[in-house]
């Protein structure tokens, strides 16, 4: 069995659900909104113009995670997975197609999100954004898109492992919105290796940890790869 027809099938599944399209549309809306709010409050010594612009990605990632989770969890309801795997018995290939069908739209929407957020954030920051060079702005846009994609895939892999959207979101959302913030403020080297904190270095103009923007994204990519591998193993090993 070739990969392309399986990818096509998974893409139709995503495209034909309004809730999934709504999740995608929420990514730029939420990111830009929270970036506008954070850019309007620029007090403090550790002001970072790039992160002020892309701060909203912390919230936009929730929509990306919801998207990745829903795309996989739908397969674990009412015997949908049995139908999918009866059509595509090569389970590894099926899961790869599913992951690709999640990654492609999130990456595309992520790039749009990056551009929109940059424009909105710069407009709100005004003169304070003048320090941002072209290279940093491009890095922010691309990094934002890649980061959102990796987080959606991270959630997808976790959902395949846990077989439940409630379990996945119940772990990820409190972690991203609460635990990571708290641990991050206590700040030590271990916390810098968490998937979200490592990946968000790319959204900063300056950083003081051991990791730079691209090594940070690479750490997030490792987390994502591990989650996808665990999910793929679960799909392959367990009875459908």
């Amino acid at each position: 069995m070739a990969f392309a027809p399986v990818f096509h099938s998974e893409w139709i599944k995503i495209r034909s659900l309004r809730s999934q399209l709504a999740s995608l549309a929420t990514i730029p809306a939420v990111t830009a909104l929270f970036s506008a709010l954070s850019s309007s409050d620029t007090g403090g010594d550790d002001f970072d113009p790039l992160f002020a612009v892309f701060f909203g990605a912390s919230f936009g990632q929730i929509a990306a995670i919801a998207f990745g989770t829903a795309a996989v969890s739908a397969e674990f309801q009412g015997g949908a997975l049995r139908l999918s795997l009866a059509a595509v018995p090569r389970r590894g290939r099926w899961f790869a197609a599913k992951a690709t069908a999640i990654a492609v739209p999130v990456l595309a929407v992520g790039l749009v999100t990056g551009v929109v957020t940059l424009l909105v954030g710069k407009a709100v920051l005004g003169a304070k954004a003048d320090a941002l060079g072209w290279a940093e702005q491009v890095r922010g846009v691309v990094g934002c898109a890649v980061y959102l994609t990796l987080m959606a895939l991270f959630a997808a892999g976790l959902t395949a492992l846990l077989r439940s959207s409630a379990a996945t979101l119940g772990i990820l959302i409190p972690f991203l919105l609460i635990v990571s913030f708290v641990i991050g403020d206590m700040s030590n080297n271990i916390a810098d290796l968490l998937p979200d904190r490592a990946g968000q270095v790319v959204l900063h103009a300056t950083w003081d940890g051991a990791m730079g923007p691209w090594t940070g994204l690479a750490v997030t990519a490792l987390w994502t790869a591990a989650a996808l591998a665990a999910g793929a193993l679960s799909v392959r090993r367990r009875d459908a």
Binding site: K13, S19, L83
Partner: peptide, 13 residues
Amino acid sequence: ALLDAQAAHGSRT
């Protein structure tokens, strides 16, 4: 094969 009539996602046509 028909295994389960609930296999189709409710929000899809």
